[in-house]
Computed example of a mutant assay.
Amino acid sequence: MATTTTSYAEEQAAPAARAFWISRINVGRLIAHLALLALVLIWTLPTAGLLISSVRDRDQLAVSGWWTALVTSDRNVALTLPGADAQAEEGGRYVIRGELFSDAGVTVQRYGTSINNPTEAAAGETLAVRQGGEITVAADGSYEWVSATPFEHDRVRLFVVAGTPPRFTLDNYVNVLNSEGIGRSFINSFTVTIPATIIPILIAAFAAYALAWMSFPGRAWIVALIVALLVVPLQMSLIPLLRMYNGIAMWTGGNSKTYLGIWLAHTGFGLPLAIYLLRNYMAGLPKEIMESARMDGASHFKIFTTMVLPLSFPALASFAIFQFLWVWNDLLVATVFLGNREDQLVLTGRLRELLGSRGDNWEILTAGAFISIVVPLIVFFSLQRYFVRGLLAGSVK
């Protein structure tokens, strides 16, 4: 009878080996979590920066980044002091008093009387003025200008380094929605996006069921053709499609720049991915359910509407997210099929015009940009639980 013996060295080495592999597994998991956290931060920080910038005061936004939104920001200000008619005689002296800032919370860091040296004196220090007398500016912005002789100046400039506390406002959004035409473009984008998302889903769902569960000649060739269409660039097919659509519009005497045209265009561009995604998901549904339904006398249409569609909701939601985001953020197709008419200009087109006409007004651009992304964010987070399930449709058996 054979026996197996373990040496003392092997018994001592076994726990060390187990600890080594456990430590390697923990390190690998930690690295994976850190990489995931880094990706989340890379995608989240720009959105957070855009949101913070869109609610900041325009003066602060022009001189400092969004990451300084919660701290006091310094800016150089050139102010004009009152003329000689504002002086008052007090005990043989002539005095001019006042406040540099009307906004509460603004503080003076340093100040000067010459543009060549705007930080000559700190707040609270006294500084000689070339036009006569001496001026003292306090940190809260109050000043006292004293002279032994009457003031005769007409205009004196004072240069101040002012500290401004954080200020947030919704005026940027009010300005964008009311004055810049974003509100109308916002509605136009919904008018384009919602039908351009629903129409391809309806068509693709019927086609995907037929390719997954109905037998007919040439089915494999149709699937191969759909896969091939996935790699066709949009730019390659855009011009031929536009020429064909314009020809039909001219033949019928209609207008080619209509919402119907852009709905059909987005439907055509989105159908290959929709059919491919839904077909893979429907093909992975349990075969026994379909056979039982057919044995009970259910038709294909009955099976499709009562069984397949409810079970395929994750895939439908995944494609709806893809199509909605694509159409909402589209500019090229909207420009080609709708043009630049004011009453049909979509949100991306309006933002493009703002970049040209208001490119230096960052508060307008940030508010408009965040308005454009808030709807896709709502759509994504409301359907995200179905997103991964739909993307993995048909990938494993």
Rank of each mutant, 00 (worst) to 15 (best):
A283M: 09
A369P: 03
E89M: 02
L70S: 12
S372E: 04
Y111P: 04
P150Y: 03
Y281A: 05
S179P: 01
L34W: 12
L325Y: 02
G261R: 01
N340K: 04
F337C: 07
A84R: 13
V63W: 07
E125G: 04
R341M: 07
R157I: 04
G83F: 03
S185E: 14
L61E: 00
Q384H: 14
F206P: 03
L331R: 00
L229R: 02
D140Y: 06
N117D: 15
R167V: 14
L36H: 09
M290H: 15
R219K: 14
L238V: 01
R243S: 05
P314M: 12
L36E: 11
L277D: 00
E144C: 05
W263N: 06
L338Y: 04
P233E: 01
E125M: 09
Q384C: 11
L39M: 14
E353T: 11
E90K: 06
Y276R: 06
H300L: 06
G183T: 11
A317Q: 03
S395A: 15
V108N: 02
F159R: 06
V129Y: 01
G349C: 09
E342T: 14
T191N: 12
V227G: 03
A84I: 07
E180G: 03
L392K: 10
V174M: 12
N361L: 09
E89I: 03
N280W: 02
